[in-house]
């Protein structure tokens, strides 16, 4: 159990980096500004629960890019330079390295998200808003988890690829597929099926489930189901927020687990 040593060093390294400060600063800034604008931007009631629904849109774009950019070089840059050899010469296993790096980076993202959501919550509640403490805590929890999912995807590319450049390409590819083009493909398929007359309106449930697998949509269903009182989740049982909870866990464990298996077996030189 020596991942804590690695996590501590990685935290210090990550926090000290200027590009990290920029990325995290942007994330915090957007969350706080959204909260600042939210009470004056629409009709009431203004609650933290409804705020979650409002900020969710920018989070599903920003958190993934911050996560993959923070994660992609976690291991591979040290592997390329040879610093990984120093760590693995010490009594650390490869699992310790991966888990330590994951905790270090996720820690940094978590601290940013928790701090800015705390400030945001205050801005929403004061002076006229309403705090739904339990729901808001759940939202902070889901957001942090979502940050973990994307940082994990970034780190997964970092341990699967042999060079930093390949890791970056892979990480950005995943980001673009899920965050940039996913919705477009969904709309395209819906339009096409409507056009040929196979469906009328929305997609059938199984297809909805398939498109709903994307982490941002899973996060959205959780927010709709558990946090935002103005939203509802409907459809077949496998479209429910409870299944989304399971999917959320899989998204954290799956990519890292698969990439780790490859990393654990392979030669380092």
């Amino acid at each position: 159990m020596s991942w804590d040593v690695i996590a501590r060093q990685d935290w210090a390294l990550t926090v000290g980096e200027r590009s990290t400060k920029g990325l995290l600063g942007l994330l915090g800034f957007v969350i706080v500004v959204t909260a600042y604008v939210y009470p004056v931007s629409g009709p009431g009631p203004h609650t933290t629960g409804r705020f979650a629904g409002a900020v969710h849109g920018s989070l599903t774009t920003l958190v993934p890019i911050v996560g993959v950019l923070l994660g992609y070089n976690a291991v591979v840059s040290e592997r390329e330079s040879g610093a990984l050899r120093l760590s693995l010469s010490l009594p650390h296993s490869r699992a310790d390295v991966v888990f330590g790096k994951f905790l270090g980076r996720v820690g940094v993202v978590t601290a940013t998200l928790v701090a800015s959501l705390a400030v945001a919550g205050f801005l929403v509640v004061y002076p006229f808003g309403e705090l739904e403490a339990f729901r808001y805590l759940a939202f902070v929890g889901f957001t942090v988890w979502f940050g973990g999912v994307w940082t994990g995807i970034g780190i997964a590319t970092s341990i699967a690829a042999a060079t930093k450049r390949r890791a970056l390409v892979l990480a950005l590819f995943v980001f673009f597929v899920f965050v940039m083009v996913w919705d477009t493909v969904d709309s395209g398929v819906t339009l096409a099926l409507n056009f040929v007359g196979l469906v009328d309106g929305a997609l059938p449930d199984p297809l909805q489930f398939y498109f709903g697998l994307e982490p941002g949509r899973v996060f959205g269903r959780l927010t709709d189901g558990f946090v935002d009182p103005s939203a509802t989740v409907d459809g077949a049982w496998y479209l429910s927020e409870w299944v989304a909870l399971v999917l959320f866990v899989l998204w954290l464990v799956g990519p890292l687990g698969l990439a780790y298996r490859r990393f654990a077996r392979g030669d380092l030189s």
Binding site: R85, L86, S89
Partner: peptide
């Protein structure tokens, strides 16, 4: 105790921090 070949030191860490890392790791 290992002095490996083809290593490089950690970026943005002082010599002393390298030793402290080794001390904590061991």
């Amino acid at each position: 105790g290992v002095l490996p070949e083809g290593y490089s030191v950690f970026e943005r860490r002082t010599g002393r921090q390298h030793l402290e890392y080794a001390i904590r790791s061991k």
